[in-house]
């Protein structure tokens, strides 16, 4: 069990540091690569754990439930981006985002959110970046 977690941790960590691919190609084509932040990321193990957990969720859990998020980038991608951009506050922002991810979000288009993107499987998604 421990060996499994170690191996998966190493695989996930290597991906976390260098590149983050979106969950779905339709979701967003943006690659969240920030060279400046990645230099400091190596020293911050706390954030690495968080990012690895997100990566784990995206690889093994998320595909099972399919594309259900109302936003683009999806909540896990948002969390990934928020933590990389804002550090610990990014975690708070992501929890708030999870609570905002409901059908009422479409009522707030053009008031709190500027734009939307069309997706094949889930109609339109509201664009909300951290």
């Amino acid at each position: 069990m421990i060996v499994f977690f170690l191996i998966s941790g190493i695989i996930l960590k290597s991906e976390v540091i260098y590149i983050e691919k979106p969950f779905d190609v339709n979701d967003t084509l943006e690659v969240y690569y920030d060279e400046h932040y990645d230099k400091t990321l190596k020293e911050n193990s706390g954030e690495l754990v968080f990012l690895s957990l997100i990566k784990f969720y995206q690889k093994f859990i998320s595909p099972a439930q399919g594309e259900v998020c109302n936003f683009s980038p999806s909540c896990s991608n948002y969390m990934f981006k928020a933590i990389r951009k804002h550090g610990p506050i990014g975690v708070l922002m992501s929890i708030d985002r999870l609570q905002r991810c409901n059908h009422a979000v479409r009522e707030y288009l053009y008031l709190y959110y500027d734009d939307y993107v069309l997706t094949k499987s889930r109609g339109y998604k509201i664009i909300d970046n951290p």
Partner: peptide, 10 residues
């Protein structure tokens, strides 16, 4: 607790 903190921030 996690969602409660998120709610306060939200």
């Amino acid at each position: 607790g996690i969602f409660y903190i998120g709610e306060l921030y939200g």
